[in-house]
Each structure stands twice: as C-alpha cells, then as structure tokens.
Amino acid sequence: PDDLEKRARELLKRGKNPDEIREYLRNAGYDQSQAEEALKRAL
C-alpha cells in the first residue's frame, strides 16, 4: 500500500470516520481523487 493508504488506515484505526479522513488528506495536500482511492482501499 502507498503512504496515502497507510495514512488512511492509521486514521481509521484511531476512530476517524471517512469524511474526517477525506478532509485530513485534502488538507495534507493530496488531491480529491487520490484521497478517495486511498480511502476506498483502506476501508
């Protein structure tokens, strides 16, 4: 898994919901489609 996916998994483990994770990834400078893909793979 790429770093983005790892980060998404990490956040899920900490109890973040998908919307929070999307926002976090966007704020971290990733584009929307990258964030969506990583989140899908992590779920």
Results as ranks from 00 to 15, higher is better:
Q34I: 11
E10S: 05
D2A: 12
A42Q: 02
Q32S: 13
N27I: 12
A28L: 15
P1Y: 13
A8N: 01
P18I: 10
D31P: 12
P1C: 08
L4C: 05
A42C: 05
A8S: 03
K13T: 06
L11T: 00
A42I: 15
L11Y: 05
A28T: 04
E23W: 07
A28Y: 07
L43A: 06
R7S: 09
P18A: 12
R7F: 15
K40M: 13
L39N: 01
K40H: 12
S33G: 13
N17L: 12
E10R: 05
E36Y: 04
E20Q: 12
R41G: 07
L25M: 09
S33A: 14
K16V: 12
E10F: 05
E23V: 08
D31N: 13
D19K: 08
A8M: 10
Q34Y: 07
E23R: 07
L12D: 01
E5C: 10
P18Q: 08
R14T: 12
E10V: 05
N27L: 14
Q32K: 10
L12W: 04
L12A: 04
K16Y: 15
L39H: 01
D31Q: 07
N17W: 05
A8L: 15
E5D: 11
N27A: 14
E23G: 05
R22A: 08
E37N: 08
D2K: 09
R26W: 07
Y24G: 03
E37I: 08
P1L: 15
R14G: 13
Q34M: 12
D3F: 12
N27F: 09
N27S: 12
Y30Q: 02
L39V: 10
Y30S: 03
N17V: 06
G15Q: 02
K6F: 12
A42F: 08
A38K: 01
A35T: 12
A38V: 09
D19V: 06
L11E: 04
D19T: 10
L25D: 00
E10Y: 07
D31Y: 03
G29Y: 02
E5R: 05
R22Q: 05
Y30T: 03
D2T: 11
A8R: 00
L43D: 03
R41I: 07
K16P: 00
E20P: 00
L12G: 01
E20I: 03
K6Y: 12
D19E: 11
Y30C: 07
Y30A: 13
E10H: 05
I21A: 03
L43G: 05
Q32Y: 12
R14D: 14
A35D: 00
A38H: 01
L43V: 07
L4D: 02
R9F: 08
E5S: 08
E37A: 12
P1K: 11
R26T: 11
D31W: 03
Y24A: 12
A38R: 01
A35W: 06
R22Y: 14
P1S: 12
E20Y: 11
E23D: 10
D19G: 07
K6V: 11
Q34F: 06
Y24C: 05
L39T: 03
G29V: 01
E5W: 15
E20M: 06
A28E: 14
Y30E: 03
K6E: 13
R41Y: 06
S33F: 14
D19Y: 06
Q34K: 09
I21Y: 01
D31H: 07
D3S: 10
R7L: 15
Q32I: 13
K16N: 08
R26S: 07
G29R: 02
R14N: 14
N17A: 11
K40N: 12
K16I: 10
Q32N: 11
R22I: 15
L4Q: 03
N17E: 08
L43H: 04
L12P: 00
A42S: 03
E37D: 11
L12C: 03
D2W: 12
E37M: 09
P18S: 06
A42H: 02
Q34C: 05
R9A: 10
Y30D: 01
L12F: 06
G15D: 02
E5Q: 08
K40D: 10
E10G: 04
N27C: 05
A42R: 00
G29T: 02
R9L: 13
A8G: 01
A38Y: 04
R7T: 15
R7W: 15
L11D: 03
G29A: 02
A8D: 00
A42E: 02
K6Q: 14
A35G: 03
D2L: 11
R7H: 13
L4P: 11
S33H: 14
L43Q: 09
K40S: 10
E37H: 07
D3L: 10
K13M: 11
R9W: 09
R41P: 01
R41H: 09
K6M: 13
Q32R: 11
A28P: 01
E36K: 02
E5Y: 15
L25C: 01
R9P: 00
A38W: 09
P1T: 13
Y30H: 05
Y30N: 02
L25G: 00
E10I: 06
K13N: 11
R14L: 15
S33D: 14
K13A: 14
D3E: 13
R22T: 07
I21V: 13
E20W: 13
Y30V: 10
G29H: 02
L12K: 03
E37S: 07
A28D: 06
L25A: 02
L11H: 03
E20C: 06
K40R: 14
Q34T: 11
R9K: 10
A38I: 12
A38P: 00
Y30W: 09
R9Y: 09
R14I: 14
L39S: 01
L4Y: 05
A28N: 09
E10W: 09
R41E: 04
G29P: 01
K6R: 13
D19N: 10
N27V: 11
P1R: 11
I21Q: 00
L39A: 02
R22L: 15
E23S: 06
R9N: 05
N17T: 15
R41L: 10
K16T: 06
Q32M: 14
R7E: 13
Y30I: 09
L43C: 06
K6P: 03
D19W: 09
G15W: 02
L4S: 06
L12S: 02
A35E: 01
L25P: 00
A28V: 07
Y24Q: 08
N27K: 13
L39Q: 01
E36S: 04
Y30K: 02
L25R: 00
R9E: 06
G15H: 03
L25H: 01
Q34V: 12
Y24W: 12
D2H: 11
K13F: 06
E37W: 08
G15Y: 03
L25T: 00
G15N: 03
E37L: 09
Y24T: 09
Q32D: 14
E36I: 04
D3Y: 13
Q34D: 12
D3K: 07
E10N: 05
A35I: 15
R7D: 08
D3C: 07
D2P: 10
R7I: 15
L39I: 13
E37F: 04
S33I: 14
D2G: 10
L4E: 02
E36Q: 05
E37V: 07
Q34S: 09
A42D: 01
L25N: 00
A28C: 10
L11N: 01
A35P: 00
A38N: 01
I21M: 01
Y24P: 00
G29S: 02
E37T: 07
L39M: 05
R14M: 15
E5K: 06
R14F: 10
A42Y: 04
P1I: 15
E23T: 08
D31M: 06
K40L: 13
A42W: 06
E10A: 09
A38D: 01
N27R: 13
L25Q: 00
A8V: 15
R9D: 04
G15A: 02
G29C: 02
E20K: 03
K16Q: 09
D2C: 15
K13P: 00
A28G: 06
E20H: 04
R22V: 15
A28S: 08
K6A: 14
P1E: 12
K6G: 10
K16R: 10
R9S: 08
Q34R: 10
K40T: 10
E23H: 07
L43S: 05
Q34G: 05
E23I: 09
A38Q: 01
R9H: 08
G29E: 02
R22N: 04
E36W: 04
R22G: 03
S33W: 14
A35Q: 04
R14E: 15
I21L: 03
Y24R: 03
E37Q: 09
I21K: 00
N27T: 10
P18M: 08
R26V: 15
P18V: 10
K13H: 08
S33T: 14
E36L: 05
A35R: 03
L25K: 00
D3T: 09
R22P: 01
E23K: 06
K13G: 09
R9V: 09
R9G: 06
E20T: 04
P18K: 06
D2S: 11
E23L: 08
K40E: 11
L12T: 02
E36H: 04
K40Y: 13
N27Q: 14
N17Y: 06
R14P: 01
S33P: 08
K40Q: 14
L25Y: 04
S33L: 14
E23Y: 05
P1Q: 11
I21P: 00
